[in-house]
Nucleic acid binder design. Structure first.
Lengths: 173, 173
DNA sequence: GGACACACGTGAGAC
DNA sequence: TGTCTCACGTGTGTC
């Protein structure tokens, strides 16, 4: 090391490192709602407490949700009624689903599918969630297969694409 | 400052402080499941990500739970589940509901009611909860009135009284 | 060798 | 006054 005022080479690198760490401390602190002190030690301590709190709360919520889901599942082939993500993947199979417009605010959906418990309830509810009003239904089930013809009107402010209706139907049958 | 090797007074205090901080870093790291590197910077970054993930997951769970609760409350009219009292009183009105047996394990229900949003979905689900399998439906709605003809089979072990079906239908329409 | 992360000892500001 | 917390520059180890 030179005896003069010359500095070590990683001086600036170390400065950047410290600045980054400082920023992260700040970011961490901004995430934690309950802050005792602004010190690094308190930041870490509070973050640790908060994470533990979040973890146990998350587990608790998951348990409650599971209980709810179980209870709901206990009711025969009942309806999901939240109808967004928890929907099962669309069936890729050879189920027949045809949706076509009748006039400018009516739709006709024709469905042929393997019989499934509560299929009609699910269908009816799915249409309801889309804001479509079912005006007519013809439903018939034979051993192993069901056929349903649905007439509906778009009462909502905005039109619903037939393709969207079809996708939803494919998901719920 | 003495020119000899004597050190500053807070030397040991600073050592303890650093040790404590180090321990907290370690504790924090042990709480975060997804660790990229063992460095302080990564520890903070991962903790930040993890907290954000936990927070949004928690919110999502709370939303789902709320929706579940709402949905359950909404269905209250149709499902007994655990509920006995929360069912709304049967409508006393002049709605027409007729249920009669066809053969020994079939029922035919005929309903005429003032049109209501989602009536079909509720009806279908109600039948489902009774363990009745809907084998045929003819549904038609005209301005102000709807008519539904439902054919169903009792698949359950025990028969369902037609009167019970009628009561449930009266509740949900 | 260079880039990186760390712990160290120290002076400075805050309460 | 001390004590607490911090940022600094530096040496050292590791990849």
């Amino acid at each position: 090391m030179p005896e003069n005022v010359y500095k070590s080479k990683n001086l600036e690198a170390e400065r950047k490192r410290r600045a980054k760490l400082k920023g992260q401390f700040f970011a961490l602190r901004s995430l934690v709602p309950r802050i005792t002190k602004m010190s690094k030690e308190s930041t870490l301590a509070d973050a640790i407490d908060y994470i533990q709190e979040l973890q146990s709360r998350k587990e608790q919520l998951q348990r409650e949700l599971q209980e709810m889901a179980d209870a709901e599942a206990e009711i025969q082939g009942s309806v999901s009624s939240t109808g967004e993500k928890p929907l099962p993947e669309p069936v890729d199979c050879k189920e027949e689903v045809e949706v076509r417009p009748i006039g400018k605010n009516r739709l006709r959906a024709s469905i042929v599918c393997s019989k499934r418990k509560g299929a009609l309830a699910k269908l009816a509810e799915a249409m309801s969630t889309l804001g479509l009003e079912v005006t007519g239904v013809n439903f018939l089930t034979l051993p192993g297969v069901s056929r349903v013809l649905i007439f509906m009107e778009m009462r909502g402010e905005r039109a619903v694409a037939g393709e969207r209706v079809r996708d939803l139907l494919l998901r719920v049958i």
